[in-house]
Design a protein around this nucleic acid. Structure first.
Lengths: 192, 192
DNA sequence: ACATAATATGTACTCTTGTACATATGGCAC
DNA sequence: GTGCCATATGTACAAGAGTACATATTATGT
């Protein structure tokens, strides 16, 4: 069936142009979603565009390369995670409350969706080969340690930071993740 | 320019066939090398073949798919790592020696090349989306914990396992990794 | 010695990807 | 209102990937 009228493109109806300020931000968020769901290796221009419901060309307009997208996405992830860390530890009035904050952070992190956790591990791997991402990781770690040092001495802060890392990662990879009670036990044992 | 004589292939001198038993094993080792150097995402049939110095076709002959290569490679990595873990802890005669074994394992792990460490993190990420690899990770973790339980109660073993994970990962990602002395301090503090 | 199966080798094919680019359109400064 | 430029949209292209497969050669059992 030929199109009845002189319409030159029977199938390619051009999508109406959308006024979409903040599209770049949405694309970064979409990238984080894709990274969490498919991993960095499954993160492509086309998949991000699909999730954000924008045409492919929009990616190359807003970002010079896919690397730039990843760097911005991971920076945003690290920033928001660090902010939560800062806030919870900043609210603690003494060492005991700081310990509670740590326990709460780990527990919430694990109880929450796998989303954030997967993002962190993906970042670790990506950082192993991308200097820009390594800088992101470094800044994030420094900030975590600094937050801990508001309540603990430097040595304790570093060790505790490592313990947190291990508890989160270890639990997340396990089929039976630790319970909040077990998390509490481990942290209190270390800080006792 | 047409080839002057009837020689049908002027440039493609066929490589002499090599008698190469154990090539499959070599390919798995080559895969581990490539994973460590380029990451899972940079691991391709062609790159593995190049490292092992075999033609591309050899990959598809020995393995049904790239996934199969990765699964076999990570299984081998987990197996060899777990064996070292078992041996060191098996040789310990009491709790104090077990603690020394743990400290030694972590320190050696960090002082050694980045090779094994990168492989582990790559496995974690890959396992997050591949059930077969998750099973490999699970078996590995179960074996580590079992080795620790020869000297520590179950709760301590699990917590200590997490601490080891955190110390290794955290140190490896940092630009200034922990020294053996710092590792010792952290472990002894936890076990004191 | 010979047949046969196992292994080695080279290459073609198709699909996906990153990226470039031509074109369209509407918000905003004036 | 009008023109311009930022932004949106669609598409093309080259490179690289996994995989299939035709062909060649040797080990091995009989």
């Amino acid at each position: 069936m030929a199109p009845p009228t002189g319409a030159p493109r029977p199938t390619t109806a051009r999508r109406p142009r959308r006024h979409d300020p903040g599209r770049r931000d949405r694309l970064i968020d979409a990238a984080l979603t894709v990274i969490a769901e498919r991993g960095v290796s499954g993160t492509t221009h086309r998949e991000i565009a699909r999730v954000a419901d924008v045409p492919l060309g929009s990616m190359t307009y807003h970002f010079a390369s896919l690397e730039e997208v990843l760097a911005e996405a991971f920076t945003r992830h690290a920033e928001s995670t660090a902010r939560v860390f800062d806030e919870r530890l900043g609210a603690a009035r003494d060492r005991a409350e700081a310990a509670e904050a740590v326990i709460g952070l780990i527990s919430d992190h694990l109880l929450g969706s796998q989303h954030d956790l997967v993002l962190s591990v993906e970042l670790y791997v990506a950082a192993a080969r991308n200097p820009a991402l390594r800088a992101v990781t470094q800044a994030w770690m420094a900030r975590s340690r600094q937050a801990l040092e508001r309540h603990f001495d430097a040595v304790t802060a570093r060790e505790l930071d490592a313990l947190i890392e291990g508890l989160v990662l270890h639990s997340a990879l396990s089929t039976d993740p630790m319970t909040p009670g077990q998390i509490r036990h481990a942290v209190e044992r270390f800080l006792r």
